[in-house]
């Protein structure tokens, strides 16, 4: 009896060891392209999730997959403190090889940057520029001022006198502030004026009510600058309620220019409701961020350390040629 149970334990132990051995054999025998060391685990921390972020995340995942990297993704729900804790968890508890971050707030992210530096984990910022850019391993963002300027040139190119209102995103977001400043500066340089600013806090309802109120106060409005595609439905609803929604070419049409180039924007261009969209190169963010992670991991410094990539314009005239490059039209 005793013998049998001892035997049982012995057989069981053997079986487990054998299974483990089998596993390790299986992995080691698998052919490898890059060396095991070059497959990174990369922590990705976003400020929030929406369509644009989803597209950016998809780009990062695609680039990571090509290199065989693993992505560990977290979202901070627009809470800077939460983001700091999440990045701390990624670096200290999960020991990721690099972090890719869209900061909730460009100043408050400083403690996370310092932590990454102390732990020698590459810190890569994308989309939103970070105040402490000197300590960031690599940063790639859009160029909000240039994008705003491009949007303004589109508005100025339209014929006739322009009475312009400008929607403004959250004033705590330097992308929103940059787009506003770039737009205003270029309009003034071109001899135009902005009739009214509508604060939106990136909120659909505020954008709708604000636009409706501005149309009310100033019936002469014939141009609206929308700093992000995702406010476009609000503006369309406000125009519709005011009886001003008409396709491009209609005399009642209000000239609309947006930034982002997301699926909403792409569809609106195709439907002749939107005149111009400044497309941000978010696909590039993903590819370059992953590349920078590998460069930094191999002990070199990515060069240049910061990149601000301006967008390009897709409009009614060039949509046939540009839509293939527009990320929003791809999905």
């Amino acid at each position: 009896m005793k013998l049998r149970s001892t035997l049982g334990i012995a057989i069981g132990t053997l079986a487990i060891v054998g299974m483990l051995a089998g596993c390790s054999t299986a992995t080691t025998s698998k052919p490898v392209g890059a060396s095991e060391k070059d497959k990174l685990t990369i922590g990705v921390s976003f400020d929030l999730l929406n369509d644009i972020r989803n597209a950016e995340l998809d780009a990062i995942k695609a680039a990571a997959k090509a290199k065989g990297d693993t992505i560990d993704f977290v979202s901070a729900d627009q809470d800077a403190q939460k983001q700091a804790s999440q990045i701390q968890d990624l670096i200290q508890s999960k020991s990721v090889d690099a972090v890719i971050v869209i900061a909730v707030n460009s100043d408050q992210i400083a403690s996370s940057v310092a932590l990454a530096k102390a732990k020698s984990v590459p810190f890569i910022a994308i989309d939103r520029a970070i105040a402490d850019a000197g300590n960031v391993t690599f940063q790639i963002t859009g160029d909000p001022i240039a994008d705003g300027g491009l949007a303004a040139k589109e508005a100025l190119a339209a014929s006739g006198d322009r009475t312009i209102i400008q929607l403004v995103g959250a004033l705590t977001d330097q992308n929103a502030v940059g787009r506003r400043d770039g737009f205003t500066k270029e309009i003034e340089a071109g001899g135009g004026t902005v009739a009214a600013q509508v604060p939106t806090d990136w909120d659909l309802t505020k954008a709708l009510d604000g636009t409706a109120n501005a149309l009310q106060a100033n019936p002469a409005i014939n141009t609206i600058f929308i700093p992000s595609d995702y406010l476009l439905p609000s503006v369309e609803s406000a125009l519709k309620a005011a009886g001003r929604l008409a396709p491009v070419g209609d005399p009642k049409h209000v000239f609309l220019v947006t930034i982002d180039g997301d699926p909403n924007g792409c569809k609106a261009i195709e439907a002749k409701l939107l005149d111009s969209d400044v497309v941000t190169p978010i696909g590039q963010f993903g590819v370059q961020a992953i590349d920078a992670a590998h460069v930094a991991h191999s002990g070199k410094k990515p060069s240049p350390a910061t990149a601000a990539v301006p967008g390009f314009v897709i409009n009614q005239a060039n949509q046939a040629s540009e839509s293939s490059k527009t990320w929003g039209c791809a999905s």
């Binding site: 929030l48 929406n50 909120d203 309802t205 439905p233 609000s234």
Partner: peptide, 14 residues
């Protein structure tokens, strides 16, 4: 009513 007015849903809605 709000959706009818906005015509869109966003994750941070309300």
């Amino acid at each position: 009513v709000q959706l009818g007015r906005l015509g869109a849903v966003q994750p941070t809605l309300d």
